[in-house]
Nucleic acid binder design. Structure first.
Length: 226
DNA sequence: CGTATTTGACCTGCGC
DNA sequence: GCGCAGGTCAAATACG
């Protein structure tokens, strides 16, 4: 079943929470609690779900090895800022931090696994810009052998492009649902081909495709976040 | 045979 | 205006 726990803090412009992934998913994950981040309408409206199997291991440089060896981490890029989620397997604690361009942590907060969806992040408002308004976009990088991560939606590939200064092509996908204009790009990091960068653009107008019996719960989640 | 993917051509935005 | 790079289209091809 698709269960979720969601908090909305009136004073906060965004939110961080958890939900449990459906047990019969294609990712080989059973009833696992996963983190998500959603931003409400005052900022960007984004949602990402980060299955543990997609969460890359930390770099194993000598300085970090002893402290973070068993930790899991993932990153979500959003404008100039990076939200870093980290799970310690030692004490089952999740933490997030907002990181600037120089990888310095601006904010950091930890919370218990048992505290479902109780943390919120205050985000800066997006600066007004002369640029053409685009659909909300966000991306995250994961360490994975497979390029296309199963996020519950059905995608059709519509293009592939060689990217300059990298030997790995970028693939373009569109959501197969009628009237849904969500797109995603998938590419591998030039510096580290083990890392997959997935970029989503737009907003789904429906529930994940292999989650139909739980569509009501899912759409409630979507309505709240989107 | 219907659907999904591949791939070269075309379009668009941007910097010079 | 020109060239380049990224993004999209659509005909051809592959696949179940």
């Amino acid at each position: 079943m698709f269960s979720q726990s969601l908090f909305e803090d009136q004073d906060m412009s965004s939110q961080l929470g958890f939900f449990s992934f459906p047990p019969n998913n294609n990712m080989g994950i059973s009833s696992t609690t996963l983190p998500f981040i959603g931003y409400n309408q005052n900022t960007l409206k984004t949602l990402t779900m980060i299955p543990p199997s997609f969460v890359p291991s930390l770099d194993h440089s000598p300085n970090n090895e002893s402290r973070h060896k068993e930790d899991l981490t993932t990153s979500i890029f959003r404008g100039p800022h990076l939200i870093s989620l980290r799970k310690s397997t030692a004490n089952n604690t999740w933490a997030w931090g907002e990181v600037n361009e120089n990888s310095n942590i601006i904010k950091r907060r930890e919370f218990d696994h048992d505290h479902l969806g109780v943390s919120s992040i205050k985000m800066k408002k997006i600066k007004s810009s002369r640029r053409k308004v685009r659909d909300p976009r966000f991306c995250f990088k994961t360490m994975s052998d497979v390029d296309v991560l199963d996020d519950g939606y059905k995608w059709r590939k519509y293009g592939q492009k060689d990217v300059k200064n990298t030997q790995h092509p970028r693939s373009y996908y569109r959501c197969t649902q009628d009237n849904c204009r969500v797109k995603k790009r998938v590419e591998r990091l030039a510096e580290d081909p083990r890392m997959v960068i997935t970029t989503y653009e737009g907003r789904h107008v429906h529930s994940p495709s292999h989650d139909e019996e739980d569509s009501q719960a899912s759409s409630q989640l979507n309505n709240l976040l989107w």
